[in-house]
Design a protein around this nucleic acid. Structure first.
Lengths: 340, 340
DNA sequence: CAGTTGTGCGCAAACGTTTCCCACTCTTGG
DNA sequence: CCAAGAGTGGGAAACGTTTGCGCACAACTG
């Protein structure tokens, strides 16, 4: 097909080819390779030599048919494959790859029909398990139509059924890291600017922030969190607004890095030194934002890759009949840069 | 297992269950479902009823074993799954899903060992084909170790072997769109700021830009393109530099959107109206950059999703024994916003 | 009414493994 | 010298599907 030196064989050798070359039966060849069963070392060696000579590799389809499993897991992402699901996916792929398990990718784009379609496909392929992940941290209804006890792990957005296995980010602990960092640095007049009030991530983080401030007998400098959207533009507008209402604000804790970057832009344009006069802390550690901001942002890293990895490990456990039902919280990490 | 209403069946029905219930043989049941072979409509109906009653779905493993193919393609990404490979991946998944083909995800992280490992795995699983994609547009060596004529399509970064199938972005046409847009608006003193000189995307775009300017008897306002890195910081620095060397610059064409955003930041901070005094055009249409920039950036969209889609279609053609060797160029699109 | 055509459907092989069961060949001890 | 036992390895069934072949029976035709 191509004139290059790449190998282009017609069809791969099967176990009977190997057996024939080694002068044994297929069954013996199989046992020689699997290590089971007793046999003369010499015989086993002949089989191994034949394998090498023919470049034999077992047909996974056949193994799967016999074993009734596929050494494959489905990874369903509910809304595109974006900034959040990608690291989760990589973490999962990494952990699974170690166990000779491959990942089948299914993107539902938030469409229930598509989700059903993919689910049927996964069941038909006899996947060993399924990881469901979404962008939002809001709980989601469990997958409907899982047959034969195939285990499912929900990553990032937990299942509404507490009997399911979910792996999520520990927002409370993340907020505590941020608030403690600001308090320790002596900030007491803190504002909170975040995303839409209908996102769990926004309301949860706001709630935790107010709680931790209350623990230190403080409250938000403007009296309440500011809900908007996750954009830089909102961060810029919100900063203007907060500074008008409470000019003595000495810190902003933001619901994500884009908002935080918007806040720093407003501060810089007003000539307010960061972190000298006002400190800013973001959330997510999205490096395209945190590193490009001026100054680079101190932020909370939610360890998305770790979430994916743990989800995969929990799934492997469940596949091995050791399910750990419930919600598993993955701790976040404070990343200190120049903004606070 | 769970107290919710979800179906939890023990094991799925097989075709012999269906046949038994319908009172026919397995062979007949199979033919009834596949539509092949002649039979009494009444018999066929009985089989169909049995299928419904048992919620039968054929076991893909068995079908694959018989057919010698898996209705699966491997998608290898060479360096993480980032901003560039993700849309390609989605486009591919979309096009393949229509053909009942699923996607196996393999991330090599730029590691040759890992690439070999994944490739062997894919061959063992008898994938119907492979799509290889990378972040960089630089050509890459073809996959080594593809057996049995399994077709491979290279997306985004072409194969160095011209006999392979590659689907890439048409950088020349993209640059022409940008340059023409600037020229039509009357700009003649154009600067070009781009990424590292060891990236094909940077040097190619620079070369095309100079060529199209030459076609209009013009040259770059600073006499040469400015190579740096793909960051906002470089965009900001480069803008300072260009304005010092050639204060009468009336447009910046940038190698990507981050650089373009950096340029607009410098211009805004110097009080230079964009696009009133100086126009700015980016590249890639990365919306987190283009929409957040002030003003929102006019840019070139390389249609990554389309590249993925076409790569998948070419792969399907090749699987059907109609390979279209060579490099396929996907045209880009000018997205006009406020910066030019 | 015998022979031919045609329809409907069952049987079995095949895809490539794994594993159970059994037969054979040595060796060894009585 | 023969029987028992251990060590080897062959044969075949099974996983669940698809498909080629051929048989039985009905319906024509001459």
């Amino acid at each position: 097909m191509s004139e290059s030196g790449r190998t282009v064989t017609k069809a791969r050798a099967t176990l009977s080819d190997v057996a024939a070359l080694a002068g044994v039966s297929v069954g013996t060849a199989s046992r020689a390779l699997s290590g089971t069963g007793r046999m003369r070392p010499e015989t086993r060696q002949r089989v191994i030599d034949a394998v090498q000579a023919l470049d034999f590799r077992p047909n996974q389809q056949a193994q799967s048919l016999y074993a009734g499993r596929s050494w494959t897991v489905g990874l369903m992402t509910t809304d595109g494959i974006g900034r959040f699901s990608t690291p989760v996916l990589l973490g999962a792929e990494d952990a699974l790859g170690a166990g000779k398990i491959s990942v089948l990718l299914c993107d539902t784009r938030g469409d229930v029909i598509r989700e059903q379609h993919h689910l049927r496909n996964l069941m038909d392929r006899r996947v060993d398990g399924i990881i469901v992940t979404g962008r939002r941290t809001d709980p989601r209804p469990p997958l409907d139509g899982v047959h034969g006890g195939v285990p499912v792990v929900y990553a990032l957005s937990p299942s509404t059924d507490p009997a399911d296995i979910s792996v999520v980010s520990d927002d409370a602990q993340g907020c505590r890291l941020a608030v403690d960092h600001l308090l320790t640095a002596g900030h007491t007049r803190i504002a909170h600017v975040t995303g839409p009030a209908h996102h769990a991530a926004a309301v949860d983080r706001a709630r935790h922030t107010e709680r931790f401030l209350a623990d230190a007998s403080l409250q938000l400098v403007t009296g309440k969190p500011h809900f908007g959207d996750w954009s830089e533009a909102w961060g810029r507008r919100a900063a203007e607004m907060v500074l008008r209402t409470a000019p003595d604000t000495d810190a902003f804790f933001c619901g994500n890095d884009q908002i935080a970057r918007g806040v720093t832009d407003t501060l810089r344009e007003r000539g307010i030194p960061v972190p000298g006069a006002v400190a800013v802390v973001g959330y997510d550690n999205w490096e395209t934002m945190t590193l490009a901001a001026r100054p680079p942002l101190t932020t909370i890293d939610v360890n998305l890759t770790e979430i994916g990895r743990i989800a995969a490990l929990r799934l492997l456990d469940a596949i091995d009949n050791n399910p750990a039902p419930g919600v598993h919280m993955i701790p976040s990490r404070l990343v200190v840069r120049d903004s606070a």
